[in-house]
Amino acid sequence: MTLDTLPPLTRAEITSVDWDTLAPDEAKRLRALGIDVGARVAIAHRGIFLGKDPIAIMIGRMTVALRRVHAQAMTVKEV
């Protein structure tokens, strides 16, 4: 399952990230925010109006906004 399909407020662990599909600078920024393999995350908010973008995830005590393309590159398993 990829992060973008995770139901809201369900806690999950990132098991792998397909970094090659992301722009190098964006990959760097995601890693700097701690969004990497082993991180525990949950989706807090998804989309504006009927869209599915952007996504706000909770990681630790932070809320981070990102796009669906980023979430699609991350495989997660529920914990």
Binding site: L22, A23, E26, R29, L30, L33, P54, A56, M62, T63, V64, A65, L66, R67, V69, H70
Partner: peptide, 10 residues
């Protein structure tokens, strides 16, 4: 160019 992404701490 390619559309850019959006990554931001709230």
């Amino acid at each position: 160019g390619e559309a850019s992404g959006f990554i931001m701490e709230m």
